[in-house]
Design a protein around this nucleic acid. Sequence first.
DNA 1: GCAAGGTC
Length: 936
Amino acid sequence: MSRPIRVLNVAEKPSVAKSVATILSGGTNFCPSRLSHSQYNRIFEFHYTIRNQPCEMLVTSVTGHLMEIDFDDRYRKWNSCDPAILYEAPVKKFVPQDKLNVKKTLQDEAKHCQWLVLWLDCDQEGENIAFEVVDVCCAVNPRLDVWRARFSALTSRDVYQAVQNLVRPNKWLADAVDVRQESDLRVGASFTRFQTQLLTNAYLINLNNSANAHQAEGDRNHVLSYGPCQFPTLGFVVERYWEIQAHEPEEFWTINCSHTAEEGTATFSWMRGHMFDYSCAVMIYEMCVEEPTATVIKVLDQQKLKNPPFPLNTVELNKRASWYFRMSSEHTMKVAEDLYQSGFISYPRTETDSFAGNTDLHAIVQEQQEHPVWGSYAQRLLDPEAGLWKNPRIGTHSDNAHPPIYPTKFSAGESRWTQDHHRLYELVVRHFLACVSQPAIGAETKIEIDIAGELFSVSGRTIIAKNYLDVYRFESWGNSTIPKYTFGQQFVPTTLTLDSGVTRPPPLLSEADLINCMDKAGIGTDATMHDHIKKLLDRLYATKDANTRFAPTKLGEALVMGYDDMGYEELWKPSQRSRMESETKEVSVGRKSKSEVLASYLQDMKAYFLDARLNQVKLKEAMDIFFERSNRSAGDDHRAVGDTVRRCGVCNDSDMVLKRRPDGNFMVGCLGFPQCRNVVWLPGSISEATVTTQVCNSCSPGPVYMIQFKFRMLEIPPGYNVNHLGCIGGCDEILRHLTEICGTGSRNPSSVPVSSARGRGPRAPSSNAQQTSTRQGACIHCRQTGHSSSDCPSQVVQPQRAQPRRRNTQNENAGEASIPCTTCGESCVLRTANTDNNRGRKFYSCQGCNFFVWEDSMNDSAGGNTQGANRGRLTSNPRSSSARRGGRGRGSRGGRQGANTTGATFVSATGDPLSNRCFSCGDPSHFANACPNRGR
DNA sequence: GCAAGGTC
């Protein structure tokens, strides 16, 4: 036996370190440990043998990522550079301040170890963290032998197997995360700075109408963030909202039939579903009414099972907490984290929805036997004679690191728990108990009948055994009894009605819907989805109503609309995120290198960025629809970003950039304005100026990029060239002379290039423009002489505030009147339908919810619900007295022979009896089924 | 003042 070696084991989180140490130290619940430099990460110590090598094991942990990525300091201030530069600016990975104690622990221990074993979670992120740990540890001990333990669950078997089969860490997996991190940072920071600087001060972003009442205008903390996850999430919300806006209600017709017998009532549905053609529906209906005898043509009895849910993972936990308790995902995760920290439930951030084969499921159930409410169910589960037990279903998701969420400790409720703690613990327990239960069993009967050739059906269900539904009170499976029918049986329906309804738009996305969309599109992870949703609310991009349904704010809609109008769905739909997913997958399996994927992705994203900036007018146009312009915008033009000329020598913090001022004159100013007021005023005779890539050889500190100038010939003395490649660093005599001769665009005529410009007092206010133009005798708008700026024919007119754009342009032709919505209180706007069936018909459509009502039905009923709007409901009661006596209600048949076999009464919902005439052509001499126009 | 991903 060789000498023991010291092994430093590092897990991703304290709980895993504890589990690994507990298992490897002998499986008892006690493993000696000591404190480290960081509060949460203890160090466990014990002896163990790895492949015949005696080891002194030290097991400790990090807390997630040890390092962060950010730009070099030079680029971190928002005004330090053109955001486009962020696609190439150097980035660095470093241990942030709040993790330095973890780093110190690792380094202190690593110095005295021979091996480093990495117990990070077995996914891409875990592998990336592993390399962060390696970097930190090898910096103080380069001789460390580095190993990776791979486990798929924290069970004894997996841990033993992992420690005896150590492998080397996989750089490809870690590289995949590097790609994601770097691209997210560059794209997020560049777009965020761009749209924030472009829009926040330019508009009065007043969102007082939103749930998050907030006056964003002038609020420097109001960042208009952009992120590769938050924008697609916002996109889902906006897209659904637009779908609702664009929905055009369409009236449809359906025939319903009911039959009441001694055992109850069966309500049959028309197997055609519904028809949009009124005439056709009436024709069929009339045929049914005339020969209403129903014949049973199918009786289908079958047993149906309703399966219990899959084991619970994070996405399901969030969806179900939202459905059952209307808890936000953010709050759900907070409460779940608290329950986890206090040991009541397992790790709540998991993708896994199946239990490892060796999980002791019975032991988990046993713990719950004492519970006053569901304890008896747990006892039944454990009783073999009850036959209630069934092994859980096997889901298709796994994060290879954590089990599904299950109760880890019994509790009948703790005194410090809030109502939501109780609810969530109950959900986790009941869900687990349901998972190990038999499915519910029901007997279903499906009946089909034939009336005059038309088919109708009804289903009834009797629950034979509730099984898991006994404990899983959140789900139901209704009993619906129907009378008994036999094949060939005939009966006359109790009612036979032709009912109308209108199509409804889909509802706004609920939180559960949104999580579903994100899950399907791969936006975010189980641990971050709730953060992205919360970010939409925090950034005032969306609001959430009491029913947990999300609507975009004006700001959220405008931003998405702006990018959409540019033709860039890629910037607000999930496609680019999906691309990133597949590209990082390629990196993780070694098919592509980190650098090639990053280069290609960032090249494309930079192209989007530059184009978006070029088309920024689209963003502004979208904002114009919803917001007033701020008069601060003009004064804010000094922030307009130009091309970098040199680093500012005064503040040493930001770039000096070439800019054209509103008066047409050029200057080179520091982006650190107003903190730094360094500026170089350029001659007023310049008509064009462009920064080149050529660097001045004489001026320092460099680089100082040279500028290609073009002067107005009539404004410079003879002998000077109109084209001049100049330098503002101080070496350019021509530029100095022209500045002295022609003056500058500044109020201070003494300002000349170079150091004399430094450290001047406050920069000229906006009245500069007027003064400059006065001096030159030209209008500040068009720079022509002969009129003053106030008389300028080309003066820019502030755009009028437009009405929010609605996508349902087909129905846009009304909107002149409105009534308050009885559902949500918003206003309902009067519109005119353009559909074939209802062209010209007016309806009120709510701007805030789905409420809809036909104007002409408003006096008929107090309703106006979107469902089954109450127009023209035709009823027929074949068993009515008039039916029995062969009459057709009021009035005579007008000579119609032989057709009136049923004598049904047709009454509209408005109470007007319909005349005895053809529904198709109006002729009283026949019914529609005998109409000569039939079939045309 | 910016992203998204870990985790406490």
